[in-house]
Design a protein around this nucleic acid. Structure first.
Lengths: 366, 366
DNA sequence: TTGATTCACTGAACTAGTTAAGCTATTCTT
DNA sequence: AAGAATAGCTTAACTAGTTCAGTGAATCAA
């Protein structure tokens, strides 16, 4: 394929490359004669000219945005898709192009170092202007270092507050999981439930920092709601399941329902685990929401379609999350700074059919 | 951040840029003195030099591979993740870097045109050397045109056989869904089932060509197995569900079980829909696999964890799919051609707990 | 001692588009 | 008609690393 260059057009038209560049960019402050303009356009069309991004990037930014996301386990996939959809909308509208780099940066520190190296490399090479980095575990320190060195980046769903060594805040967009958990618990309390079990996803040894933070936030949100309702704290009602191993979630549900004061409602802090919990309850001969109400977390689209009954859950607006992160980054790229670099996104309660008023409460009041 | 260049190193070391390049690339055929070599290395370390990809790409290819995938509905996400995991392994091992471009190219023709334009642009600009394009609907023609113009690309899970205008085959890696469907049906036949319902995912109006092909392949594979077993063809046992709308799948299951000769087993050609089908059967008071066996298709990881009972299904080795596509592309990039440009991947039966011997058959034989 | 060979390195072309500065004519002002 | 302004275009520097051809000096063979 004969790659057409401006030089070829210039030669044919009998003008300089600069003139061709001015014509094709319709730069107004340099006047070019109507006739020359037409001739250049005609020849460009004839030769099927397409501008080279690489050439343009000598003087101008490429307007590419790197998006680093991890896809370690299955729950993350629908998470990533939603987040990226938001980023896509915002960037394309602003004339930027999002490039996804699915780095397994959540698996360990060595892979994380790969990501940091790669981010530095493509930025120095001017291949990518700025970065959106999702759930950066163990990486806050090296990423802040990059930020201090002038690499524009926005963190997503990482630690709550990140600052440079001289105290400037690093742009970040987080979902308020504490609020989300509190919404879930509050919904169950409003339905009259008084013993509400909490099943958290595993945050075991190798798991990543931001996920652990999310789990802690959920725990705190749950406790906020419980204590706001004037109920005593009961740690027997808090257990950990596992995102991957169904037997683990099942065991957690079974042992919780075996308690003398068994819960009448379960808050399972991940939709996929919530479905496993519903299955486990069914095996125990308990109906949902007849005997036990179940509320999930995340509103993962695929899961809500597979749940029986349809799952009441907490929607985390990941699309907004992506959109705002992209907006923050583009503002930074265009103006060199951002007004409000720390954005918190509020989850919403989605009531479907897996929660119902507490029977015990109805009986008690009757 | 003061971006260090070879010029700076050269100036400090009192040598030319060429010498620095030779030293840092340890090019063997050009001899450089031990002392100069050491000095250049020392200065490079001191200044914290990192090679610019953009500079290098003047003479050398960037070794970037573009991966175009769509993520329109939820089923696709785990599909994409598996595929990309395979591509990642293969490309990184070979020193190439995969860049994901999640284009919504499966939504319509205009978005598809965007993808084709983008592919041409980044290839002309030498930003990306070659492309892996997944399920290119409506796009075969323009993509083949690009291939003829010298853009290295490999298609994945598209139409069975693609050729250029002069008859050369375009590299392609497809999963043999006809075989996969036949495996599923054969498994049920071996368990003694004689009336096997087939529920296909919707291929409605706006759906894409390759998906429609997949559905047809599944249909043919099912019929292959049925007729090989000497059973009559019964189109009442074939229905369409919907990947998104659970009510639709439920209706299909209900009306099928209402037949005078109701099936004793269902082959539901998508795991997510298979879970919906199990829920629908349970609502009808039928147990799985006690009354009705259910086999899925795809072996989507998230779904197999949520199914109750664990789903017997057909595993489509998407990781291999990605790996082989990447291998094909890299071979093409390095040698300029490939030996066997058309690869077919064979699915495997995964037996879990949602299928069991046919009771009717046992009764009949007793 | 001459000629060839090798060592160690340099110069310059290459890629491809952007843009500030400069240079002719021509037109306009007074 | 001199001087200024302006339209219309060109020149050249910019980016940054790769690589071929070439050059000067030292080494070695005859």
């Amino acid at each position: 394929m004969p790659q057409t260059t401006m030089r070829q057009i210039a030669d044919r038209a009998g003008v300089s490359v600069a003139t061709v560049s001015y014509v094709l960019n319709s730069t107004c402050n340099v006047p070019i004669g109507t006739e020359t303009r037409a001739r250049v356009h005609a020849i460009a069309n004839e030769l099927g000219y397409h501008r080279s991004l690489l050439g343009r990037s000598i003087k101008q930014p490429l307007r590419h945005i790197g998006v680093a996301v991890g896809a370690p386990d299955q729950t993350e996939q629908t998470y990533t898709a939603e987040l990226f959809a938001g980023i896509r909308e915002q960037t394309l509208d602003a004339g930027y192009y999002p490039v996804l780099q699915p780095m397994p940066h959540q698996i360990g520190q060595s892979a994380g170092a790969d990501l940091v190296r790669r981010v530095g490399e493509v930025h120095r090479s001017k291949l990518i202007d700025g970065f959106i980095i999702d759930k950066a575990p163990f990486l806050t320190a090296p990423l802040v270092e990059l930020y201090e060195q002038g690499v524009p980046l926005v963190l997503v769903n990482s630690v709550p507050d990140v600052r440079t060594s001289d105290g400037r805040p690093v742009p970040i967009v987080n979902v308020d999981n504490r609020l989300g958990a509190s919404l879930a618990a509050h919904h169950l309390l409003e339905l009259g439930h008084r013993r509400i079990g909490l099943i958290l996803p595993d945050s075991g040894g190798t798991r990543l920092e931001p996920t652990a933070n999310r789990i802690l936030d959920v725990l705190h949100g749950y406790r906020d709601a419980i204590s706001a309702a004037g109920l005593p704290r009961d740690d027997a009602l808090i257990m950990q399941g596992d995102l991957v191993d169904r037997a683990c979630t099942q065991k957690a549900v079974e042992s919780m329902m075996r308690l003398a004061a068994a819960p009448t409602a379960l808050f399972v802090a991940d939709d996929a685990m919530a479905v496993m919990a519903i299955n486990a309850l069914r095996r125990l001969g308990l109906s949902v929401p007849g005997n036990v109400s179940v509320i999930g977390y995340g509103d993962w689209p695929i899961v809500s379609r597979l749940a029986e009954p349809p799952l009441t859950t907490v929607h985390t607006p990941l699309r907004d999350n992506g959109r705002l992160a992209a907006k923050l980054l583009i503002d930074f790229l265009e103006t060199g700074s951002v007004n409000d670099p720390s954005i918190v996104i509020e989850p919403r309660l989605i009531v479907r059919a897996s929660t119902a008023p507490c029977r015990a409460a109805t009986k008690g009041s009757a």
